[in-house]
Amino acid sequence: MRFSPLKSSLSHKMKEAKVHYLEATKDTVHWGKFDNSLTPALKIKSGDFVYAETVTHHAGDAPDKMMDDGIQAIYAAIPEEDRKPGPHLLTGPIYVEDAAPGDMLEVQILDLEPRLPYGSNLSAPWGFLFEEEEFHNKERVTVYKIDDKGQWLTPHFAYDYPGPYDVNGKILHKNDVERMETLKGMQVPARIHMGTMGVAPAEDGPVSTIPPSNFGGNIDNWRIGADTTMYYPVQNQGALLSLGDAHLAQGDSELNGTGVEASVNCLLRIKVRKDFSFPLPILETNEEWMIHAFDPDLDEAARIASFKAIQFLCEFYYLSKEEAYSFLAVAADFHITQVVNENKGIHVTIPKEAFLPD
């Protein structure tokens, strides 16, 4: 029988699941790190639903547009010196009963909804072209607004960032900068997704949220949105899932350093899977599988992705290595997920319709 996670997941009876509300507060968020020693913000059973709030670490780029009282309270409660080693503000961790190393954590994203209709894109010091002469030392913020239907973003204003962008969550009021019209007559398709989501790494101590890895984290695949499912290899007892760094839009590569960073609430269903394992995060959509791989060298990331995609096809669709290699060449697509997060990302897209029913 071919691999069918959907069939297995439906075996959980809906009546047994509980719905939890995880509000983002100073006590339920952590800034800049994954850490397997963090106290869980929530404990759930496999199959439960979680409505979780996430708060962007870029809300200070336009506080009059991107902050409400709850977001202001979180920023006020966490000193700037504690916002490290990475920049991202995450909600969690969520402890899932019975999850253990060797399992997979299935995270179904059922819905995503912007908390506020604004998001910020930063042409950042870590952007791909920042060291080029045309963009060197040019840090620029562009604020977008999403429409009521959640389909399109329109540019609201832009400004040149005053000084280096070296304080995570720094608040700049509108009188601190010169806001200007930008991208006149243009709109951007909305691609609401979770930029950073993953289980706690096996490594002890704080681990920066910047580089994605086998535990997930800052993957920045804009397809990780509503009506999709992520699978993460569990590294610790309880899995310890954290999430944040939501984007209203982003292209493959995240070229200038960020997506359209925003605070987004999400409805998840989280399950422990003991019936299969895989060493890297997998995204499932209605039409495709996506295998993610990471490395500081993009060529090496592509090599890892190739071998892991072959492993996926051999283990779950019973192809030989030679068959899988040929299939990837003619039917799969290799995408550059992002080039700006220390570990560069590749994802291999495998079409489900290529596999005929048994």
Rank of each mutant, 00 (worst) to 15 (best):
I270Q: 01
R115P: 02
R303G: 03
R115W: 03
G205I: 14
F355E: 01
G86H: 03
D98F: 09
V260N: 00
K149V: 10
P40S: 00
K15Y: 07
G86L: 02
P357S: 00
G257K: 09
E106V: 07
F215M: 04
M230G: 06
E23L: 14
D245E: 11
H173T: 09
R179H: 00
R303I: 09
Y144W: 15
L240H: 08
G150Y: 05
G205D: 09
G225S: 13
P281R: 06
A200I: 08
V234P: 00
E322C: 05
P279T: 06
P117I: 07
A100C: 12
R2Y: 04
I224L: 10
D27K: 15
L112K: 04
N36A: 08
T229C: 03
V199Y: 00
E287Q: 13
S326I: 10
A202N: 09
G195A: 04
N265S: 13
D48V: 08
P296R: 04
Q151R: 12
K15F: 13
R83I: 04
G244F: 02
A309F: 06
M194Q: 13
I282W: 02
M230Y: 02
D103G: 06
D35H: 11
D98R: 14
E106K: 13
T258W: 01
I336K: 12
P206S: 08
I219A: 01
P279Y: 03
K271Y: 04
P117Y: 05
P296T: 07
F307M: 09
I146Q: 03
Q311S: 15
L122E: 08
H57Y: 11
D297I: 11
P114V: 15
I74F: 03
W222N: 10
H347E: 10
R223Q: 14
F312R: 01
A309E: 14
L129C: 06
P279H: 10
G244M: 10
E323R: 05
K84R: 11
L280H: 06
R273M: 09
D82P: 07
H156K: 08
